[in-house]
Simulated assay, not measured.
Amino acid sequence: MAEKMSEEERATWSAELEHLRQEHRDLDAAIEALLHRGAADRLQVQRLKKRKLALRDRAAFIEDLLTPDIIA
Rank of each mutant, 00 (worst) to 15 (best):
A15C: 10
T67C: 00
E18P: 09
H19C: 01
K4M: 10
A2G: 07
A59K: 10
L53T: 06
R25E: 11
L53C: 04
A40L: 03
R37C: 01
A33S: 09
L35M: 13
M1H: 13
P68N: 09
M5D: 10
G38W: 07
A33R: 14
Q44H: 01
L48C: 08
R51S: 13
I62F: 15
M5Y: 15
A60Q: 13
H24T: 03
A60I: 11
Q22I: 13
W13D: 02
A40D: 05
Q46A: 15
D26K: 10
A59E: 11
L55H: 07
M5P: 11
R21C: 11
D26L: 14
Q44N: 01
R58M: 00
E32A: 15
A33K: 09
I71M: 13
E3F: 15
R21V: 05
L48V: 05
I31K: 06
K50T: 14
E8P: 01
L53Q: 15
W13Q: 02
W13K: 03
K50D: 15
E63C: 02
L35N: 06
G38E: 08
E18V: 10
E3Y: 15
Q22H: 06
R51N: 12
E32N: 14
L53G: 11
L27R: 00
L17R: 02
A40S: 09
H36E: 07
R47A: 11
R51P: 07
E63H: 11
A33I: 09
M1C: 13
K49C: 12
M1W: 05
L20I: 02
S14T: 11
I31L: 08
A59Q: 05
A40K: 07
E8G: 06
D64H: 11
S6Y: 03
A39R: 12
R10F: 08
L66N: 02
E3Q: 09
A60E: 13
D57H: 13
D41L: 06
K49Q: 15
A54C: 08
A29F: 04
I71F: 14
D28V: 06
M1V: 05
Q44M: 13
D64A: 09
E32V: 15
K4P: 04
D26F: 00
K49T: 08
A39Y: 10
D41I: 00
E63V: 04
L65V: 10
R21Y: 02
L20A: 02
D28C: 00
L27V: 03
T67Q: 05
I70F: 12
L43N: 02
E9V: 05
L43F: 05
L66D: 00
A11H: 01
